[in-house]
Simulated scan of single mutants.
Amino acid sequence: MVKTLVLVRHAKAANPEGVPDHERPLSEQGRRDAPEVGRWLQSAGTAPQVALVSSAARTQETFQLLAGELATAPEARFTDEAYYAGAGELLELIRSLPEDGPSAVVVAHNPGISSLANALDDGESTVEDTTRLRTGMPTSSLAMFRVSTEWSALDPGTARLTAFAVARG
């Protein structure tokens, strides 16, 4: 079964004085951009069934705003394990997804989300913006992959990048 994996870097966060990093909300720009991620997914015909979302306020808010633009919101799994997780830790979270889910979205942070996107790519993509992905994922960006294995068998170099976009509202 071919699966779809979408990796999303959270939208732009505010940096209010005295607010711990984990509790930082989205900025005004971030609140405009996050729904654009959902609109992009909806227009691409991508309907994730499950979402792995970092427990940080900015990732939860990004997910809620993007999910609000989808015909059906994915089942959300908020996890502390994705908060500033590295590529390997995020990959382990994806490997634990239920195998019957054909599509998933991960909303997390840099540098982990960018590192994972670059690690998963099999290098055979014809996506024009592959070079942009190599330089890192800016806020409100997404990398979509075709996965030809079970989630539990996902390894570096085993997914095909099918789209890369930076959503701005």
Rank of each mutant, 00 (worst) to 15 (best):
A165Q: 07
E69P: 05
P48T: 09
A119M: 11
Q60S: 08
D80C: 05
Y84K: 10
S148W: 12
D129M: 02
S148P: 03
G18N: 06
V2Y: 15
L97G: 01
V2C: 13
G68L: 09
I94Y: 01
R77E: 05
G123K: 08
T131Q: 12
D121G: 04
P20R: 10
G88R: 12
Q64K: 11
D21H: 11
T62V: 06
G123Q: 07
N118W: 06
F63Q: 02
A117E: 01
Q49K: 15
R9W: 09
T158Q: 11
G112L: 09
R134N: 10
A44N: 11
R134Q: 13
R134C: 10
E36H: 10
A56C: 13
S27N: 04
L41I: 06
S27T: 06
N118H: 10
A71H: 14
P25Q: 07
S27W: 03
S55V: 11
E128F: 06
N118D: 13
L65C: 03
N110T: 12
P111V: 11
L65V: 02
N110Q: 14
G112N: 04
H109S: 05
S43D: 14
V2F: 15
T79Y: 09
A163D: 11
S140Q: 02
E23W: 04
S54Q: 10
D122W: 09
E128H: 07
N110K: 10
T131E: 14
S54H: 04
T149M: 11
L120D: 01
L91W: 04
S125L: 03
V37W: 00
T126N: 13
H22G: 08
G169T: 08
Q60H: 09
R24I: 05
R32D: 11
G136L: 03
D80R: 07
K12S: 03
S103V: 09
R32T: 07
V6P: 00
L133T: 04
R160N: 08
L5K: 04
